[in-house]
């Protein structure tokens, strides 16, 4: 530690004190200063307002956002990754597993993964039968991200936001400006659902607008607009993250209406929105 234990403690000393990184002698030194220096106590109080615990907590949510399944799949596909068997004879396979429980678990994981791949391979036909679009190309990754994100919403997420028009007006204008599209409350309002919030997010370096609604019966619904589309797509339906989605793309922008409403209801609302927004 480079702390000198002499003179008035610096900001760095105070932070190290808060982080319990000081030696007992240094702790005594800081405490003796704190006992007689009110300004220093105020500094300590200020620096301690957002502590390491807050930072850790804030970042814990990022773990949930990791595309873990895809990362695992990529790892398992690496040529050098295949867990090799020990050079012991195959007569005692369970002894091997017993001695290396983690490897045995890994092997089980791979088996499950292979089964998953098989299911994935079979799934498209099944999806076609029931009329759900198979989602696989890169252009649709943003919808997966949005769907996973929206699946975290509960009605309480939005219920605290007032329904007054003026702030929505400004929010919509700001979001519209980012997306290069004219957004007015009248163009995005929908019958029977409250327009709650418009905000700008980002996906893969491109602006992503989110207009959130609250439906008294079906909860949260959102219209998301992504300013990066290279295709013209007619309104289509799909399911992701347990949510129903109607999506379409026009003039370089991709749209999706996502929520827990039934597909026919969602399709009807999407048709209203697509007419207003893609003219």
């Amino acid at each position: 530690m480079t702390t000198s234990s002499a003179g008035r403690p610096t900001e760095a000393d105070l932070v190290a004190f808060l982080d319990r990184e000081l030696s007992p002698v240094q702790v005594q030194w800081v405490e003796s200063w704190l006992a007689r220096d009110a300004a220093l106590r105020r500094r300590l109080d200020l620096l301690g307002r957002v502590g390491g615990g807050h930072v850790k907590e804030a970042f814990s949510a990022l773990l949930a956002a990791a595309p873990e399944a895809r990362l695992k799949a990529k790892l398992l596909a690496l040529p050098g990754y295949r867990p090799e068997r020990p050079a012991t004879p195959w007569r005692k396979p369970w002894l091997w597993a017993r001695n290396r429980p983690r490897l045995a678990l890994l092997a089980a994981g791979i088996a499950i993964f292979m089964a998953g791949m098989l299911i994935d391979r079979l799934l498209p036909e099944w999806r076609e039968v029931v009329g759900i679009e198979v989602a696989s190309d890169n252009e649709d990754e943003w919808r997966q991200a949005v769907a996973e994100y929206m699946s975290l919403y509960t009605p309480e997420t939005l219920s605290g936001i007032a329904d007054e028009v003026p702030p929505k007006d400004r929010e919509l204008a700001a979001v519209g400006a980012k997306l290069g599209i004219h957004l007015l409350p009248s163009s995005v309002s929908l019958p029977g659902v409250a327009l709650k919030r418009a905000q700008i997010l980002e996906y893969d370096g491109k602006p992503l607008g989110q207009i959130a609604y609250l439906d008294p019966r079906d909860g949260v619904m959102a219209l998301c607009i992504y300013a990066d589309s290279h295709q013209e797509i007619a309104p289509s339906t799909e399911q992701r993250a347990g949510l129903n989605i109607v999506h379409w793309a026009s003039h370089g922008r991709a749209f999706m209406l996502v929520g827990r409403k039934t597909m026919p209801e969602l399709r009807e609302l999407a048709s209203v929105l697509s007419q207003r927004l893609t003219l």
């Binding site: 804030a58 949510a61 990022l62 956002a65 990791a66 991200a145 996973e148 994100y149 975290l152 919403y153 997420t157 905000q199 700008i200 997010l201 980002e202 996906y203 893969d204």
Partner: peptide
């Protein structure tokens, strides 16, 4: 708004 991957912490 936040890290891309974080989306939002509601």
């Amino acid at each position: 708004l936040i890290f891309e991957g974080a989306k939002e912490i509601e």
